[in-house]
């Protein structure tokens, strides 16, 4: 599937603002975060604070 990834604040540094990319169907936010090497990302808008499930 084609996913639009938007980065904000300090996560933009050395990366990008927005990017469309193809990902496998089962992709979770955590997989994208890991691929981008984003550390200590605060999971906004997640009921249980877990990127795997939000």
């Amino acid at each position: 599937m084609r996913i639009l990834v938007k980065l904000f604040a300090q996560y933009r540094e050395g990366r990008f603002k927005t990017e469309y990319k193809e990902y496998p169907e089962e992709t979770t936010p955590q997989i994208i975060i890991d691929a981008l090497h984003l550390e200590e990302v605060s999971p906004l808008g997640c009921v249980d604070g877990e990127w795997e499930t939000c």
Partner: peptide, 23 residues
């Protein structure tokens, strides 16, 4: 704290424009 120690000093309260827009 990530908000008071990082987000607010780097971008000011205006860091909220994109966050509220996305929300």
């Amino acid at each position: 704290n990530p908000i008071s120690g990082e987000g607010l000093p780097a971008f000011g309260t205006n860091v909220l424009v994109n966050i509220l827009n996305e929300a």
